[in-house]
Design a protein around this nucleic acid. Sequence first.
DNA 1: TTCCGACAGTGGGGTCGCAAT
DNA 2: ATTGCGACCCCACTATCGGAA
Length: 508
Amino acid sequence: MLLIDVARVSELVSRTPARLGKVGHLAEILSRVTPAEAEIAIAYLSGELPQRQIGVGWRTLQDVPEPRQIATATLTQVDEALSTIKAQSGAGSQTARKTLVNGLLRGATRQEQVFLLRLLQGELRQGALEGVMIEAVAKAAGVTTAEVRRALTLRGWLPAVGAAALAGGVDALRAFTLEVGRPVSPMLAQSAPNVAAALTKIGVPAALEWKLDGIRVQVHRSGDTAAVFTRTLDDITAQVPEVVEAALALPAGDIVLDGEVLALRPDGRPEPFQITASRVASRTDVATARKTRPLTVFFFDALHIHGRDLLDLPGAERFAALGDVVPPSLLTPRLVTGDTAEAEAFFGDAVRHGHEGVVAKSLAAPYAAGRRGAGWVKVKPRHTLDLVVLAVEWGHGRRQGKLSNLHLGARDPETGEFVMLGKTFKGLTDELLAWQTTRLLELATGPTDSWVVTVRPELVVEIAFDGVQRSPRYPAGMALRFARVLRYRPDKRAEEADTVPTVRALML
DNA sequence: TTCCGACAGTGGGGTCGCAAT
DNA sequence: ATTGCGACCCCACTATCGGAA
């Protein structure tokens, strides 16, 4: 199969708004691929690469050469080219990558170039990624989506699962099993504005657990070896020896657990997220790092214990099984209640201890691996500030032609100037996006065709955020975490906006 | 007919390791 | 030595489609 065939289908999919239509187009091409090409085609058409990452980003993709007129590249040839690019290392590797990427693009037609550029930048923008591809695979292979999802849960890589389904149908899918040592896509949580809403969503009684502000880990222990994986299934075993030791101290046998790892201060309160992230990301001299910033792991779920898969069991039974193998000191603090007041008190306690909030969990729901299932709902406190728009950036994709990303500032009461605290593009409806584009163009102080449009600091906007963190980038040395727009405040003047000292008081 | 679950898209701050400058 | 890039941690929110109610 040729790359152009895939590029054409991608273009067709982006022009087809109906989800079922997209599924139909994708299934049609999947029914035509050879077994050797299936994994590549499924990966490309769901925005992935068989190589996962190849060390090429937006910068390497500047300077696109003139396209050819005739499309000749096969999927297999492109795949081999990408493997060669990934294999570059050492001095001169970035230059070599750029040369190889340019060579690949020079052999491509305009349509192939567009497809490759989007694919390599991770922005396919065809309105179909893994979720739609699951349905296309099911349709092309003549199996149910449930069978595909089940296999994907256990294997964690749709191109492999899809290729198996196309080649061997439902029997091939059923051959995927949970293997200790191979990570499973972790279950994710929805969110709710408060504890009462979370309990309504889940039903009572429910379990509440502290939401710890660290790194999600899936821990596999088999015999005298242990492996630790992140949310995206990356292996971080070498960076977190504390977790490995905790896993090896569990009763012998095969065990797969879900938990969170974080750095705690000597008094037991959590370090800021940045400290935990730094520790977990550091690969050099881990032995020294663990002395100054020790990590602690807390478990909250069990997927497999001693030869028994627990994924389909109710949450309450999985937690009971977890308690059988993990000492209480390594369990995430948890309360089972049907009483809203009691649940709210538990939430308040978690926050007072310096944690992010709570996750409310259904006692009945199975482990919905890889999905943002309704079985888990997180609740975090929300702060708000009235800030001033200092500048705004033009949007991409569906926000093309709209002023989108706001630069936010607080007032410095001593100078009367405004100090930037971060940006946000979140929380804007299409209507608000249109309104702010018009309004901010009226306030523009410089050229409006540049990427960043600076404006007179007059417009006040109410911003919600999760907290204030130390920043090496912004002038006040602090930035907002997860800032999003709640509403504009046309009733407020910039002089009435919140001040830098107010924000600084929140950075504790 | 209306409601709602699941997805895709649009980007945010911060950190590390490595290559280039 | 410093800077820039790519990858990966954490992530919120809206629009849309289509099945559920």
